[in-house]
Each structure stands twice: as structure tokens, then as C-alpha cells.
Nucleic acid binder design. Sequence first.
RNA 1: GUGGCUAUGGUGAAGAGGUUAUCACAGCGGGUUGUGGUCCCGUUAUCGAGGGUUCGAUUCCCUCUAGCCACCCCA
Length: 468
Amino acid sequence: MPNKKGPFKKPAPKPAVTESASTPAPATTKKSAQPLQVVRGMRDLLPMDQAYWKQTNAMAENLAAAYGYERIDTPIVEDTSLFVRGVGRATDIVEKELYSWETAGGESLSLRPEGTASVVRSYIQHGMLNLPQPVRLWYTGPMFRHDRPQSGRFRQFYQAGYEVIGDADPVIDAQLIILGWNFLKGLGIETTVRINSLGTPECRTNYKNALVAYFRSKKAKLSEEDKKRLLKNPLRLLDSKDPVILELKAEAPQIVDWLDEESKTHFMRVLEFLDEVGVPYQLDPYLVRGLDYYTKTVFEWYANSDDQELSQSALGGGGRYDGLVESLGGRAATPAAGMSLGLDRIVSRLKEKNPPPQDHRMPHVDVFLAQLGEMGRKRSLALYEEFREAGIPVGEAFSKANIKAQMEIANKRGAKWAIVIGQKEVLDGTVQIRDMDAGSQEIVDVKKAVHEIKKKLANGVDTPAATV
RNA sequence: GUGGCUAUGGUGAAGAGGUUAUCACAGCGGGUUGUGGUCCCGUUAUCGAGGGUUCGAUUCCCUCUAGCCACCCCA
């Protein structure tokens, strides 16, 4: 629609149509409509999975602190040209996966498909080159790619990324790899890094030429698809699964042989650093990555798994991008490197490793208030505040009248004590404290209820914390 | 974007061209009206949406939507 300003724009009042009067039509009006559901490739992160996300996000934050990264948040929406110039026009990410639209003002905007371009833009825009170098920044948030959904592949997915801008030393590359490796290891996911070097743009061009020349000589054997790729992005031929290519690949020139001395040394040193720390890696001469900005080191983490199916997709990746700052308008050539981790995939691994309990657990409380009658309910409502202020985890089911139902909930929530307040207790100014394990009850002055529970909590054996 | 497979209550499953669509778990309500974790009973689906074939479709066909798998590619 040409005039549409955005998804939240209130629709202009239509000339009175009879259908829905003043109230918005409830979903139940017509049963014939397609049920409402999430947009393709999008998903809800449900309560039952939040513990895994929390754990993952905590890891991201802790490692950021441990390695000296500062948090940065950039907008989800950027000028389309940022990604065209940054990620590369001919990449799949830009060519077919970018969520782009034109605003009423005629700007072309896009949802970020990755984080690095934005961070570099911010680095340039805010003159971070005047900060002590290198600048280490980390971020986390949703990314968007209009891809065909599959398991572990969403159109909105989450990444945590770490960027080091302003330093050319190979130790930076190595430490990024170590960080990611520790990230995954800390969550119980053992990985191996696949690593390669693309060299400088010059090496890459030379190599590309050699590669094109090689495949040209075999052109007769190539499929139409591969011929196209030969023209557009010959490096992509290397990760083709086409058996013909796989066969030809064995004889094809390898990038390592085309690296200049400096790139070669850089690469060797990265590997030496990895050896030093004992991070397992695997040289992969065909690892290319789908973003144009990479130079020299590129890498991806793959889970060590006997299940080959699952080990197909990378859990994260990154590399050096020495030319990006300059190509996005930075004043000087500024070396940089970074990496990002796929949180959705990590969370799904975590969940596989530690399946959630079958029964949906309600949040644990120490004390549960069970009330009877209107007076009891009022007194409980007030007492609830006392417990809350005292910092004692307390639960309630004030909307239930039936005490049996309330006791059931108290039990489900793992309360050690239930406090029963009915009409009788209100009149006496007391409460009954029921020990849920023993089944015994005692009568206590209502004013001493909180104090009494505190005492019990203090000398009672610490209840085994019901985590997750 | 291309091809294939799938779609039954909140979840996981079973089912047959035709009177009340089966089972388990969860949820809610109850078991004579002030007490839990066991037990018993009740209750929750116009079988993804739209259309077609048929006397009749949830079951057959088409389209759409979504998920999964492969390709493409990546996180």
C-alpha cells in the first residue's frame, strides 16, 4: 500500500460499515477465518524456554566482562546502503534475504541481517577512533533474514557478537576464537573451530582468478547453477555439495597457496595462539563465509557430535575485516575483527542436553497464603505485602474460594509452609501455620507470622533450591 | 526462491467416506460446603484455512497458510 506509514498506524475510520460497532470484533465472531498465528519464520520464546535463554544471555554478558568488552546497542533498522556496502551487494544476505522497504519519505531502510556493519557504522559516526585502541564492543539482539525457515533457521534470530576494532595483531583473532569456544564450552557444548585465511583483497583476487581459470577449463562439467556462480561469486563454488564440484575441488587451487607472506604469517600465528591455549581447530581450505568484508582469518564453530545431521549448521562464526571501516567511510584504514554466535541454535542445543521437566513447574515459594471467606481474603492480602516486603518468597491464590484448591497449588509450588486464614483466625487475630511436609499445624499471632516464618527459615534446613 | 513430506483438543498420539471422533498427560470443576501431594467422577476439538467431488468428508482432489527435510545458504 502506497500510503502506509507503518504497521502501527491506526487505520482511518471507514465510512460506517455495519460489521463491528464500537467494540473491536472478538476473535470468535467468525469461525471460518484462518487462525491467527506468528508470521512465517518468526516465533515466540515461551516461558518454558526462558531459563535456557537466561543462561545463554548470562554467559554472553559474563564473557564480555571477562574479556573487556563494552556493551553497545544499535538500532534494528538501518539505511539499506549500510548493508549493501558493508556486507556486500553480491552476497545472498543482501541480494535475497534483506528485509527492505521504502519509507514515505523515500528512504530505503532495512532490518539488520547481522551486527557488524552497524557496530562499525557507530564506531565511525561517534569518532571512536579517538578512544584507546582497540575498541572492544559487544552486542546482542535480534537479526532478520528473509530465508526459507527450517529447524535452527528463523527469519528473526538472535545473535551475540563481539567486535574488536583498531588492532591488526593476530592475537586478536585468536582471542575471539577462544572467547567463542569458551562461551560454548561453558554451556556444555564442545566444539571444534573450522578455520581458514582469505588473505588480503589482493590475494583473494589473484586466487579468484586462478580458481575461475581452473573451473573454466572444466566448464563442460558444470551445471547451469554453478556456471552462474563461477561468474558471480566463484569462491562459493568451493562449498558446493555437487558431486561434480566435489571431485573437481580436489584438484582446484587452494587459497593458502596464494596468500602473501604477511597473510601467511598472520595465519600461522593465529594457529600458534590457538595451540597455546589448546583450542581444537580444523583447517578448512574451503571455508569462505557469506559476507564480503572478511580478510585474512575466517572461522566457524561446529559442535562435536556423533550425529552428523546436527553438526551441519554452524553455531557461530567470524573473522577479520581489515577493510570494512574504511569502506564504510572511516577516516583511516582501521584493522578489525569480530565474531558472532547464533543464540537460537545454542539454546536448542542446551535444551537437548538438559531436557525440561515433563510437568510445567510453577515458580517456587517458601510460604503460601490460603484464605477462606472475604475477611480471610482481606487479611491475607495485607499479610502478603508483609511477606513480600520481608523478602520471603510467598504465593497466593486469592481468586480461589475453595481451600482445597489452594492447598493443591501450595503443594505444586513447593511451599514449605501454608498459612491458613479463615474467619475464625481473623476474629482471633491469629493464623494457622501448616508444615507441609509434616502435616502439622500451629496457631500463631498474626502479628508474629512473618517473624515466625523467618525464624523457621533461618534454622530450618535450607530447602533445596528448585532451580530451572 | 525451487522440490518433497506433514497438519486431529493445551501437549503427545490413535482413527475411519456415514448415527454421540478414541487414548494418555496437562487444565478447569466436583466428591455433601475450613485444608495438599494418592484415588474417583465430570468437563475441554465443528479434525490448519478456503473451495471441489459425493446423498454424505475430518478421512479423496485442488488452492492457500504454517512446520519439517533437501537444495540454496547460513546463525
